[in-house]
């Protein structure tokens, strides 16, 4: 059985009583250890799909099997637990807490995972070292470069040993050299066995993925395999 299995997934939004379909029936399977990419223009539904896969949102209809378990209709608490333990998220604008240090940001998922403070700090330090920020524990996001901030975000996404890393335009706010560094890091993580789901509209970024799905108007347009 596939690690992620979406079937007949639909998502509608309601704007002033008008139904706006964002996803019109998506069938998709992602295997464990894949480096998967979703591409599409703005409004294609790729962000909506990403939100569904990362358990930030629930579909209007359809089935979503994650690790053999239907999660399409889970309650908010169970979704929060999945976001905490199973899915790691990396965003275009990093989404770090500006009032917290790099270390505190990385500790955040451990905090909600119920890990005790001493243990939290130990684990978080390991992951910051892993992304090459062993000397930046007590820096605030504003004191870090964009690339460094994104590496903090990656460390935060990895700290609870998730099964999937979801990256939504992870290089969108970075220069090309830094982008390459970040993508190299994701490639390395994928080699270590982590499933990576990437969302982007840049072909340069998409080329790192082994499988690319193109979305248009809430439907899968085509699929490429490398």
């Amino acid at each position: 059985m596939s690690f992620i299995q979406l079937s007949e997934i639909k998502k509608d939004y309601y704007l002033d009583g008008v139904v706006v379909p964002a996803l019109r029936g998506i069938d998709l399977e992602i295997q464990q250890g894949e480096f998967f990419c979703m591409m599409g223009a703005s409004g294609s539904g790729k962000s909506t799909l990403m939100n569904l896969i990362s358990c930030m949102d629930r579909p209007t209809s359809g089935k979503y099997i994650l690790e053999g378990r239907d999660v399409a209709n889970l309650d908010k608490n169970s979704l929060a637990r999945l976001r905490n333990k199973t899915v790691g998220l990396v965003f275009q604008n990093f989404n770090l807490l500006s009032s917290a240090t790099a270390l505190e940001n990385v500790e955040l998922p451990l905090l909600y995972g119920g890990i005790y403070p001493a243990e939290r700090s130990k684990i978080a330090k390991q992951f910051l070292e892993k992304v090459g920020l062993g000397d930046r524990f007590h820096h605030y996001p504003t004191q870090l470069s964009g690339g460094q901030q994104q590496r903090v975000a990656i460390a935060r996404a990895l700290v609870n040993n998730p099964k999937i890393l979801m990256a939504d335009e992870p290089t969108g706010n970075l220069d090309s050299q830094t982008s390459e560094d970040i993508m190299a890091m994701l490639t390395q993580l994928n080699k270590e066995g982590l499933t990576i789901v990437l969302v982007t509209h840049e072909p340069d970024v998409a080329r790192y993925a082994k499988r690319v799905v193109h979305l248009k108007d809430g439907k899968i347009l085509k699929e490429e395999r490398k």
Binding site: A80, R81, R83, K85, L89, N95, L108, P109, Y112, G113
Partner: peptide, 16 residues
């Protein structure tokens, strides 16, 4: 609001 969003994204429950 954004801070709350970030906390929720990394696994904070409603109760948290």
């Amino acid at each position: 609001t954004r801070e709350i969003g970030i906390r929720m994204a990394v696994g904070a429950t409603e109760k948290d």
